[in-house]
Amino acid sequence: MILDILVIIAMLSGLLFFVATTVGIIRFPDFYSRVHAAGKGDTFSTTMFLGGTILYLLRDFSGSTLLTAGKLLLIVFYIFIASPTATHAIIDAGYEFRVPYWTRSSRHKGTEGDVENEENMDNGFYPEDLKG
């Protein structure tokens, strides 16, 4: 009974974090903040979901469920390492790809990273904006 409530709490918090991740991915203005939303919330919500599943499996305790829970724990461990690594690789590629980033002034419409000709490339950095 207590374990069931723990399962429900873990899964609902995982769902809450996944909702936050989705809202961040859809609503955030540029690529870098979207990666910020996805990298944290995705990892943590996956961990909470799988942790709730582990608690549910350990409700009827036997050898086979213990083995399955161990495998699930390995998956949790793997995702906790691999998902930030993948996010880091994505943001490294975006930085090298010169994805434009968001500035407060809306008069500059950022274009996509134009790698071929440098003068058309709009990386979103305008030194006159810094003067206020």
């Binding site: 991915i25 690529f31 995705d42 599943t53 699930l72 998956i75 998902s83 790809f97 994805v99």
Partner: peptide, 28 residues
């Protein structure tokens, strides 16, 4: 975000999130 992402890196990010959630979905 995968369909309407402005750059290709955004699409990659969306696919990464979807793939991570697919593991949870298979377990469920």
């Amino acid at each position: 975000r995968v369909v309407a992402g402005p750059t290709v890196i955004d699409r990659m990010l969306g696919m990464n999130v979807i793939g991570t959630k697919t593991t949870v979905l298979i377990v469920l």
